[in-house]
């Protein structure tokens, strides 16, 4: 009989390298991952790259058009729009970068647990989730922010809470697919506890779906954060932020369009990058995202 080669389960690093290679092998994935990496680099090294001080006000340079000195012109206080755009994503990436894992973790756990338990509790919980999802998100979020104030310490838990709720749905649906399979039945028949079943049977099979969902939630959360900033509930001036910059510059859009275009470019390129990466990640992991429409 032929001696089979030694197969081993790929280690975490091997899998990470494999998935990354798979993502970059697709043109859309390579562009997406490139954009995301570019923005992360900017967020980290931005302060050293920015040609001007982001809060340096100059009354002589108000609302200038693009020039060799100021590539994207200046804003209504004479600050360099290019420098501010470079730094404009830092706050957003920091807040959503912390809130997204929290949302995926709590939403994922609740979803898996109720997907496993099933029955009446599950039915009731899902109706509560539906009720939550039926409310416009901005309304829910504004309510909490108005009550507790702005600032990172409020924004992170607020975003994490509200964006964890749709994750419950996805995690529960993914869990339902797995729970019906015989290996979960086999574990139940052996008499394993619920936590053991979640940890060793369900989680490894739901993890990929959660990973993709996390990437998608991240882009939604960025949009939400920028919208809050635009409305004046996000970061406080003079910290540069794309949402806030758009809000400030939109009044002068007709004669200084670069003030709006620059932050829009920054925000949309990051969100498009995340979306492309998430799609490529889903394909690399073998998940059909078309089947699981975003909530």
């Amino acid at each position: 009989m032929a001696v089979a080669s030694i197969h081993r389960r790929p280690s975490f690093t091997a899998r990470f390298v494999g998935v990354t290679a798979d993502i970059t092998a697709r043109p859309s994935g390579a562009i997406g991952l490139g954009l995301v990496t570019f923005h992360l680099m900017l967020a980290i090294f931005g302060p050293w790259l920015a040609p001007y001080d982001y809060k340096a006000v100059d009354a002589n340079l108000i609302l200038q058009g693009p020039s060799g000195l100021h590539w994207f012109g200046t804003d209504h206080l004479g600050r360099d729009t290019f420098s501010r755009t470079l730094l404009g994503g830092r706050e957003a990436i920091l807040v959503t970068g912390i809130a997204t894992p929290i949302a995926v973790l709590w939403g994922g756990f609740v979803g898996i647990f109720f997907g496993l338990v099933g029955g009446k509790i599950d039915d009731v919980l899902m109706r509560v989730v539906d009720a939550f999802l039926s409310l416009p998100w901005i309304l829910k979020m504004l309510l909490l922010i108005v009550t507790f104030g702005t600032g990172i310490e409020v924004l992170i838990p607020t975003l994490a809470f509200f964006y964890g709720i749709p994750v419950i749905r996805i995690a529960r649906a993914a869990t339902h697919d797995v729970v019906a399979r015989d290996f979960v039945q086999a574990a139940r028949a052996r008499g394993h506890g619920k936590m053991t079943i979640i940890r060793s049977e369900l989680l490894p099979n739901v993890r990929d779906a959660l990973l993709v969902e996390g990437a998608m939630r991240w882009s939604w959360m960025l949009l939400a954060f920028s919208s809050l900033s635009f409305l004046g509930f996000g970061v406080s001036p003079p910290t540069p932020d794309w949402g806030l910059m758009i809000a400030d510059a939109r009044g002068y859009m007709s004669f200084a369009p670069s003030g709006v275009l620059a932050p829009v470019l920054g925000l949309s390129s990051l969100i498009i990058g995340i979306n492309l990466t998430a799609d490529a990640l889903a394909k690399a992991l073998g998940i059909d995202r078309a089947q699981k429409a975003p909530v």
Partner: peptide, 20 residues
């Protein structure tokens, strides 16, 4: 529980694809 064990029809379904 130990004394009664079950073997399923399709091993593709009854073995967790993510476990060695």
């Amino acid at each position: 529980l130990r004394r009664v064990q079950l073997i399923f029809q399709n091993p593709d379904e009854s073995l967790n694809p993510r476990q060695t």
